[in-house]
């Protein structure tokens, strides 16, 4: 008789090499394969799990591809209007100061329609954490130009490439926020390699831990990909990101302990 391996032969505790984080729900992720959103979700949830703060954490989902973040993160969450997550987080943190409060926002959400909420929450020194996914494009609505779209970069509303004379310059909102006295920790990371995932996770852990000090906003940008919007394979997209996004959006800590990091 021929031997066939069945599913139950494979799914055994001794064969386990990789496991879903307990704080991620069983819902199937809505993200495109290879997209940085999923990885970032996972490490946020790992961090909350490791810190043991599930019952004291409230997250805010934005409008963008991660609008359904609450379907995947097994914590109490609110879904904000486009760009307004920092306003929600401001009120939640002020009304429940002992909670860990974070927003999760894309570049259109945070740096275009929500610029005012972002800057003023930072400037007030709200004791919240913002996780900012910068993929240089509007993923959800089909790949239009974002404030962070690089010069010359193609999108569905810059089909010939972003021309700064007509469409303005890409916005380094993170550097701008780091200038404000209300931010305490500002870091820019990525999640395209295991080493980068570890660094990002460390930055997120830092941001959540520092939130408890009540010294101001903690902010982690994740430079990410949007293979669908960029019209590339996941591998090409990551390579393009390394070659084009990182030179303009360099990785590393930008502000530590309330002081700008000298380059």
């Amino acid at each position: 008789m021929e031997e066939t391996i069945t599913k139950s032969d494979i799914i055994k505790p001794e064969n386990l090499v990789y496991k879903k984080t307990d704080l991620m729900t069983d819902n199937v992720l809505s993200y495109c394969p290879g997209c940085g959103h999923g990885t970032t979700h996972r490490i946020i949830m790992e961090t909350i799990e490791e810190m043991g703060v599930q019952k004291d954490t409230i997250g805010i989902a934005p409008v963008g591809c991660s609008v359904l973040a609450y379907e995947f993160m097994n914590i109490d969450m609110q879904q904000a209007a486009h760009g307004r997550a920092p306003a929600l987080a401001t009120a939640i943190k002020r009304l429940l100061p002992y909670k860990t409060v974070f927003t999760y926002q894309g570049d259109g959400d945070l740096a275009a329609i929500g610029t005012a909420e972002t800057i003023h929450a930072a400037n007030r020194g709200e004791n919240i954490t913002i996780i900012f996914i910068n993929n240089g494009i509007y993923g959800m609505t089909g790949g239009q130009m974002a404030p962070t779209t690089l010069e010359g970069m193609k999108s569905s509303t810059t089909p010939y490439g972003r021309d700064w004379e007509m469409m303005g310059h890409p916005l380094k909102i993170t550097e701008l926020l780091a200038q404000l006295p209300g931010t305490y920790f500002v870091s820019r990371q990525a999640v395209h390699t295991p080493a980068n995932v570890r660094k990002t996770k460390k930055a997120i852990r830092n941001a959540f831990e520092l939130q408890k000090l009540n010294r101001g906003m903690t902010f982690v940008e994740v430079v990410s990909n949007c293979n669908s919007g960029w019209k590339m394979t996941p591998v090409q997209a990551n390579q393009w990101m390394v070659e084009n996004m990182f030179p303009f959006y360099p990785l590393g800590d930008i502000k530590v302990d309330g002081e700008l990091v000298k380059k």
Binding site: A80, R84, L88, T90, R94, E117, H120
Partner: peptide, 20 residues
């Protein structure tokens, strides 16, 4: 009591607070 940066922010602060 918080003076917000706009009415847009104010109402979304209400949304956050009311959700709690």
């Amino acid at each position: 009591v918080l003076q917000a940066e706009s009415e847009v922010a104010s109402i979304n602060m209400l949304y956050g607070g009311a959700g709690c």
